[in-house]
Design a protein around this nucleic acid. Structure first.
Lengths: 155, 155
DNA sequence: AATATGCTTATGGTATAACATGGGATTTTA
DNA sequence: TAAAATCCCATGTTATACCATAAGCATATT
């Protein structure tokens, strides 16, 4: 029986000179139920960091674990990339993680990080990039679903 | 209840004049739970070394016994190659292993080794070769699976 | 309504432990 | 007995644990 959990909301936190960031308290309380660390990797599609629970990757490993995969030349390449790029980020007693140079560079993060809930996972953005991305998404939504427009105007 | 373990991340370590390499601490802590050695063999598909826990090979042997019809003849042959090529590599008190000439030559490794997590197993690469391989995989993923793009963001 | 109080969370700094790596000593094996 | 493998200790570097302070937020109090 799987426990339900959701990463929600958008939280802005400072990144110090050492690359440390407080994991938002909400997120931390979710993680704490099963672990004392999160797993992060570079998003394939966007200049941002993605984070999730290790159990997500474990499930993936199980699916690839059959002997066929063991020999397969065309073994799922995404999974390969994912495992190689992912890393555990434990948080200390104050709830901070230390993001690697590689991740920070990929997401163009220097002194401020934006945590964006995505349900089973979350993303970490540079503030300016996130603003643009959110704008982009909103525009795309309005274009594809004009019916939304009305309710937006009501506000 | 299966204990979860995952080889993750990409770690670069030096290979000294004696051929010694530190097994990354993360990997070592995984291995230590069940053994004081890893099993390595030459990858069939790439110029790299593959490493795993002996239990992985054990499981493979089991499945070869019970599921003969499930495996093709060629897979059977490959399995036998695998067992013949595999060797145990114990690590000392400081966590180092000594890779054989055969493995180092196959992977074209001289003074630097790159450990790449692959979930239930891992690979060891020559730095330049890994760089090229990662590039290749990233390109292949984006080209062959554009659908990922959408579903990734939706999650 | 305004202010006070206490709690949770965020942030800065420092001490400590863990790790990778080099070198030398001891043991094994061919 | 020479060469190679294994073990053990030493060191610089880096990450992690810990402590201390500051900032927000909600509730309680007047």
């Amino acid at each position: 029986m799987r426990k339900t959990f959701l990463f929600l909301d958008t939280i802005v936190n400072k990144v110090d000179a050492k690359g440390r960031v407080s994991l938002p308290a909400d997120y931390r309380s979710i993680v704490k139920e099963t672990a004392s660390e999160i797993v992060c990797y570079r998003s394939f599609n966007s200049p941002c960091i993605e984070g999730c629970l290790e159990t997500m990757l474990d499930k993936l490993a199980d699916e690839m674990d059959s002997n066929l995969d063991f020999f397969s030349e065309t073994q799922d390449e995404i999974s390969n990339l994912l495992f190689g790029d992912s890393k555990r980020y434990p948080f200390d007693s104050t709830g901070r993680i230390m993001l690697s140079e590689k991740l920070l560079k990929h997401a163009e993060i220097t002194d401020t990080a934006v945590f964006v809930g995505k349900g089973r996972k979350f993303q970490i953005w540079n503030p300016q990039n996130w603003e643009k991305e959110e704008q982009r998404i909103r525009t795309a939504v309005l274009k594809n679903r004009p019916s939304i427009k009305k309710s937006e105007n009501d506000r």
